[in-house]
Design a protein around this nucleic acid. Structure first.
Lengths: 186, 186
DNA sequence: TTCATTTTTTATCATTTGTTAAATTTTTTC
DNA sequence: GAAAAAATTTAACAAATGATAAAAAATGAA
């Protein structure tokens, strides 16, 4: 998915403002397994996924995946982006990826100069917020089995592209539990 | 907490822009028990809490509290605000409240006209996003007992101001479980 | 293909949380 | 302050999920 389409999907703004963002974007590529973003480090870029699949995970005793990003989605350490603080997430590429890279510093400058870009940034945060809120509510209302069915419904391709251990930890359960749930669904 | 302080806490912008927002704000008050915001309805206002305490809850078989708001916080149906869609939350006043009311429609107009206000709106969404993300991660990493301790640490006053049934459902457990957890901590 | 490695499933038992009901404590109302 | 109502705790048992280990299946490399 090309950068113009990605920016539009977040929020449509005048062509001129969009070009201004695009002029600050570099294309890069990394292989499967690459760690794009490291925890406990202030991250100075955000990335848009042109092609591929990534996961965000947090390391404690175990490794917990809490987000997947695919074509068209934005890879970002919210803590770095919003608060200039080290984030807690690592981002690992689950497939070979092509990415668009944008310096947070440059984006901040654009926010202060162009009202359309500021509103684009607002919409970006608002949409991410809605998604995060929906996941929180899903966790509060649904048991593991219902959450798995919901994921299959909303993102069927993920089940195919991602190994089950990651899916399980995204759902907040162990892989063994997920296997059990899958067995019961048959 | 007065409106000027509340707006500043979200993000500091030039006095003139802040006054523009303030000019669109009305003060209102409601008694404890009032339902400020109803589910399945497009909400046309947002509110800032000058004084008091509220909760957001969702009704299914049971009633699940998923947010508390106190002085300085913003009452908002994200679905209405962001997507112009009916939201899923009811907002109930847990104490007599004094509120500042702001029409979403007016705010949207300000976003499009004033880059400072657009960036204020961006910061608002970003900060809410960080908070929601932290709660999601807390739910993914911590068991009920740890989440209760975390809540006591971060918001000790809530435990005093809110009845335990609401706290339990906020933590994603039953009231009976919360009682058990509290008994074990003694 | 074949062997080694990784992923997924199955089985068993332990722990956590849920459900229901009753007892106790606290708050509200008259 | 006493009675009624609401909130909280306790108890007993059920259901869901976790932990560990082993078996089976799938994947990858030589």
């Amino acid at each position: 998915m090309d950068i113009s389409k990605i920016l539009d999907l977040i929020y449509q703004i005048p062509e001129q403002s969009k070009l201004t963002i695009q002029n600050n974007v570099n294309e890069i590529a990394f292989p499967k397994g690459h760690i794009l973003l490291k925890a406990n480090k202030i991250e100075s870029n955000i990335y848009f996924i042109k092609k591929g699949l990534v996961r965000a995970f947090i390391e404690r005793d175990n490794e917990v995946t809490f987000w997947f990003g695919k074509e068209g989605e934005t890879v970002i350490s919210m803590k770095s982006y919003v608060e200039d603080q080290p984030g807690y997430e690592n981002i690992e590429l689950l497939e070979d990826c092509e990415l668009y890279e944008l310096k947070t510093e440059n984006l901040r400058k654009l926010f202060s100069e162009d009202v359309h870009i500021a509103n684009w940034g607002r919409k970006f945060a608002e949409k991410e917020l809605i998604k995060t809120e929906e996941r929180l509510i899903s966790k509060q209302f649904k048991n593991a089995s219902e959450r798995y069915l919901e994921l299959m419904k909303d993102h069927p391709e993920l089940i195919k592209r991602v190994q089950l251990g990651h899916i399980a930890s995204y759902l907040g359960i162990t892989q063994v539990s997920l296997s059990r749930i899958r067995a019961e669904l048959k």
